[in-house]
């Protein structure tokens, strides 16, 4: 094996490890924030594999799309969860994988909130959870995790046996088939080094429709996200039933502090 080949194998192994460990960490860690970062690591690992496969433009595109995208997404997860740092769950019974990927999460027993940061007041409505969420630090977290309410222990779920089994079977089946029955007509052709030009030509020629369609799709996405997520000046009617039909606009609502959060994150989409 030549030096170049060894370097390629090394790069492949490292990048594959990053992608797989990242994805596994995402699925099993107890901390919401970490799980987002793990997913990002997985994306970057796959982007590295793209570059190793000489699809450099695509690799960079992937990194660019997902660093910004994932950071915004984690922001949302932090908003939506009681315990984004996973501190409450640090004491729970965990399987080996979970223990590994949750390594170093500080326990919730410490003062100053330990791992779960309290940035109450700052982000307005976003962090206000159901009324019974406040006494988190003092609660005992046994196996059953209390009686829910705003205090949900399942925001990152402990490994579910049957789901893990299904995933494992899935992976084993695919891997076995891939190893035993390769059916791919491999070619020795070398790709054109100027991938940007090739992709540009395809986008402007053969795949004009895909290009325009993708643009339209993104527009629909933005527009749908705004329609769904916005806080409206005119609120919807409370139910689907119209008891009176009028054509005058309903009364306006005052904007609350939570709207700022909503608007900022919307533009991140």
């Amino acid at each position: 094996m030549s030096l170049g080949e060894m370097a390629e194998w090394f790069a492949f192994l490292v990048l594959a490890l990053i992608s797989l460990a990242g994805a596994l960490g995402m699925a099993t860690t107890m901390s919401m924030f970490r799980s987002g970062i793990f997913l990002m690591a997985s994306f970057i690992g796959v982007a590295g594999l793209f570059i190793l496969l000489s699809a450099d433009l695509l690799g960079l595109l992937q990194i660019m799309m997902y660093i910004g995208g994932m950071l915004v997404m984690i922001l949302f997860m932090v908003l939506f969860s009681m315990d984004p740092g996973g501190a409450m769950m640090a004491d729970m019974k965990m399987s080996l994988v979970e223990r590994f990927f949750s390594l170093g999460l500080s326990s919730g027993k410490k003062d100053d909130g330990g791992g779960d940061m309290e940035h109450g007041g700052h982000d307005g409505g976003g962090m206000e959870h159901g009324g019974d969420g406040g006494d988190g630090g003092g609660m005992e977290h046994g196996g059953d995790g209390g009686d829910g309410g705003g205090m949900d222990m399942s925001m990152t779920t402990p490994v579910k046996g049957w789901a893990a089994l299904l995933g494992l079977a899935n992976g084993a089946l695919l891997t076995g088939l891939l190893l035993l029955r390769p059916a791919w007509p491999e070619s020795t052709e070398q790709p054109n080094p100027d991938s940007a030009e090739q992709i540009g030509n395809l986008l402007m020629g053969k795949y004009m429709m895909a290009f325009e369609g993708a643009g339209l799709l993104i527009l629909i996405g933005i527009f749908g996200a705004v329609l769904i997520g916005r806080t409206s000046r005119y609120p919807d009617d409370r139910s689907r039933t119209a008891y009176v039909t009028v054509d005058a606009p309903p009364p306006e609502v005052e904007e609350s502090a939570g709207d700022v959060v909503a608007r900022d994150s919307k533009e991140g989409d």
Partner: peptide, 14 residues
């Protein structure tokens, strides 16, 4: 990766 993704989709509840 696909298997891990399937696992995450099935097992996660958030």
């Amino acid at each position: 990766l696909f298997a891990i993704g399937v696992y995450a989709v099935i097992a996660q509840r958030s």
